[in-house]
Amino acid sequence: MNTSKTLCFDIKGIQECQQNRYPQLFIDNITDVVPGKSAKGFKNFTYNEWFFPAHFEGDPNVPGHIQVECLVQTFIMTFLCLEPYKGMKTNFVKMDNVLFKRKIIPGERLEIRAVLDSFKRGMAKGSAESYVGEEIACRADFLITLPDVLESFKPRKK
């Protein structure tokens, strides 16, 4: 595969690459994907989102775990767009250096920039940052696995 080519994915394309579905799929579209290297994701938050009435009444803002999901759903597109891994299930292993810098409210658009530092034998390491305009909203480092790939590398005997 030519890894210098950049790719874009609409919601249909995203669902072909990853297994997250409504109400757990948050990102709207993915652009500027350099397969095996980086990706950019976007999420438009409207008051229609299921969580705003509950988080919180009178002060609706995006819960932290959903912000992290937006980061990781963009991050996994950096390798799930590669043909052998398309559609595979992913597992969280580790999250480090998580920072929340800004409240996100209805009507705002989140831009997520993800970078894949290494991808080997079903283990992906990297990071993602999200922005509202030029302001950073949140960031995290990730270690994610593809359990189906990892399985083929585990010791055969104990």
Binding site: V93, K120, R121, G122, M123, P147, L150, E151, F153, K154
Partner: peptide, 9 residues
């Protein structure tokens, strides 16, 4: 299985 990959790396 995850620790194994970390050890190999």
């Amino acid at each position: 299985s995850v620790g194994h990959m970390q050890l190999m790396t």
